[in-house]
């Protein structure tokens, strides 16, 4: 990689970019829950914000361009929880399959 400039993708300070997009959105319940999971897992010592950042940065630029902010966060939270052994990948996959049978929308599947 002779053309590598010494930066990883997330180190974007000072790069050229277009106008700042001003449109925003309010946060959906599932996004707030992801945020709450991150904060609570940190408080309980399951992993740290540095662990979150590492997983986010290792996802690479493609994830930044194709996934929303909290989609990246939930993937990073999951990565850290798998590493710390909070649950197994089999448990996760089985549960996600079961959740898919509950209904077509988040409201029906959330079990809140």
């Amino acid at each position: 990689m002779s053309d590598w400039n010494g930066r990883r993708w997330h180190d974007m300070g000072g790069q050229a970019a277009g106008p700042v997009p001003m449109d925003g959105h309010d946060f959906a319940l599932w996004e707030k829950r992801v945020d709450a999971l991150m904060v609570l897992c940190g408080q309980k010592g399951l992993f740290t914000v540095d662990g979150l950042r590492r997983a986010l940065e290792d996802m690479g630029e493609d994830a930044f361009d194709t996934m929303s902010y909290y989609e990246r966060w939930v993937a990073a939270v999951n990565q850290n929880l798998l590493e710390t052994g909070a649950y197994s990948i089999e448990e996760l996959g089985t549960r996600m399959d079961e959740i898919a049978t509950r209904g077509p929308t988040y409201a029906e599947a959330q079990n809140g």
């Binding site: 599932w30 996760l92 996600m96 209904g103 929308t105 409201a107």
Partner: peptide, 19 residues
């Protein structure tokens, strides 16, 4: 807020329930 259930939403639900 009631679009089709996504893969990442299922992951959030699963993580929360398992924890």
């Amino acid at each position: 807020n009631d679009g089709p259930l996504t893969y990442w939403q299922r992951m959030e639900i699963a993580i929360r329930e398992l924890l």
